[in-house]
Amino acid sequence: MPDTADSDAFIAGLPKAELHLHIEGSLEPEQMFAFARRNRIQIPFASVEQLRAAYSFTQLQDFLDIYYQGADVLRTEEDFHDLALAYFTRAHADGVVHAEIFFDPQTHTDRGLPFGVAADGLLAGMKTAEERFGITSKLILCFLRHLDEAAAFATLQAAEPWLDRIAAVGLDSSEVGHPPEKFARVFAAAGAAGLKRVAHAGEEGPPAYVLEALDLLHIDRLDHGNRALESPELVTRLARSGIALTVCPLSNLKLCVVGDVAQHPIPAMLKHGLRATINSDDPAYFGGYVADNYRAVAPYLDRRDLVTLARNSFLGSFLPDDAVTRHLAAVDAFAA
């Protein structure tokens, strides 16, 4: 991709899905201040600039500490609607035509909000985005892995009235010390309820966590998965299965999972035949939305790789086959 302007235009126009986006992680500093004012909440920052200066992370836990603090300004269905719509507005500009977004209900119920405040607000925002931009979307309920199994079961029970509008369950938050096996029973219950299953594994945790996610949680999609490359046998298994990996380059850089974008494993993943996808994770905190993540790795890929990544995003989605077929045709038509 030698011409930067040409590359940027190609990336922005390329139809794509985003499969790894924490909606609370799209809360921009300006929005945090606006919601704080609207809800009469004091936040420990004097300005947007001071808040942005606090976004200096060396590990996942550093980020999570400020992430949970920021989420406290979200108090009403209107807040969650507006948060979602702001994300979809940016996603639309980046060529996203379908998104499968995570939310963390325990972050909100543990501070006294009813489950439906977040769920109904987000679902309303998703509906507005489809009407306004034509972007389809699905909602994924994530369990916080630093909490216990009983809390996850309680969350799944609280979600029952909304399960017809929730596509999947996921597993996020502090990875190290909280292996996937901790949640095997609640993931089995979610699967029995007809939900798809995804999990963060192999970001900071070892390849063994990826194996547990596959064998004990029976995941349909792997979030991150970088450290799977440390095991040749695991790489072969992932390639043969065709399971999608939702990879987040700028997140990996910001959290020091990689030291430099030039060292990012996306090119190696594609070389090994893995169904890697590009996503933004928590874009307000990590410095870029999905097109920014494509641009970050574009110097190390060719145009065919970018098309493959876009195609993978639809192949790895939870859309029905007819919708995926239409999106793949649109990708190929754009690339041609």
Results as ranks from 00 to 15, higher is better:
residue 240 R to S: 12
residue 94 D to C: 15
residue 260 D to H: 14
residue 12 A to R: 04
residue 67 Y to C: 08
residue 334 F to I: 09
residue 234 L to Q: 08
residue 77 E to Y: 10
residue 209 Y to T: 04
residue 120 D to E: 15
residue 315 L to G: 11
residue 203 E to R: 01
residue 238 L to N: 04
residue 150 A to Q: 03
residue 137 S to R: 05
residue 72 D to R: 08
residue 119 A to N: 06
residue 141 L to F: 13
residue 84 A to Y: 08
residue 216 L to S: 03
residue 47 S to K: 13
residue 87 Y to W: 10
residue 187 F to G: 09
residue 255 L to G: 07
residue 180 P to Y: 00
residue 153 F to I: 05
residue 23 I to Q: 03
residue 171 L to R: 10
residue 62 D to T: 03
residue 175 E to P: 02
residue 314 F to A: 15
residue 78 E to T: 14
residue 240 R to W: 03
residue 110 D to C: 01
residue 236 T to D: 10
residue 92 H to C: 11
residue 241 S to A: 14
residue 3 D to R: 13
residue 117 V to P: 07
residue 134 G to M: 02
residue 121 G to W: 13
residue 251 S to G: 06
residue 117 V to F: 06
residue 76 T to G: 08
residue 128 T to C: 11
residue 119 A to S: 10
residue 33 F to S: 04
residue 169 V to P: 01
residue 10 F to V: 02
residue 209 Y to S: 07
residue 20 H to E: 00
residue 159 A to S: 05
residue 233 E to D: 10
residue 300 Y to F: 15
residue 149 E to P: 00
residue 195 L to Y: 06
residue 257 V to A: 11
residue 222 L to P: 01
residue 190 A to G: 10
residue 9 A to K: 12
residue 237 R to E: 05
residue 278 I to F: 09
residue 8 D to V: 13
residue 296 A to L: 02
residue 182 K to P: 06
residue 336 A to M: 14
residue 131 E to C: 04
residue 247 V to I: 12
residue 267 P to W: 14
residue 99 A to S: 15
residue 131 E to S: 13
residue 189 A to S: 05
residue 296 A to I: 00
residue 246 T to R: 09
residue 12 A to Y: 00
residue 298 A to T: 14
residue 40 R to Q: 14
residue 124 A to N: 14
residue 307 V to Y: 06
residue 12 A to H: 04
residue 191 G to F: 03
residue 181 E to A: 07
residue 236 T to V: 08
residue 117 V to K: 06
residue 312 N to P: 02
residue 58 T to K: 01
residue 66 I to D: 03
residue 329 A to I: 07
residue 199 A to G: 04
residue 245 L to P: 05
residue 249 P to Q: 13
residue 83 L to Q: 12
residue 202 G to H: 00
residue 324 V to M: 11
residue 288 G to E: 12
residue 110 D to Y: 03
residue 240 R to K: 12
residue 201 A to N: 01
residue 255 L to I: 09
residue 198 V to K: 02
residue 47 S to W: 13
residue 184 A to W: 00
residue 275 R to D: 02
residue 249 P to E: 13
residue 142 C to P: 00
residue 98 H to C: 11
residue 1 M to S: 06
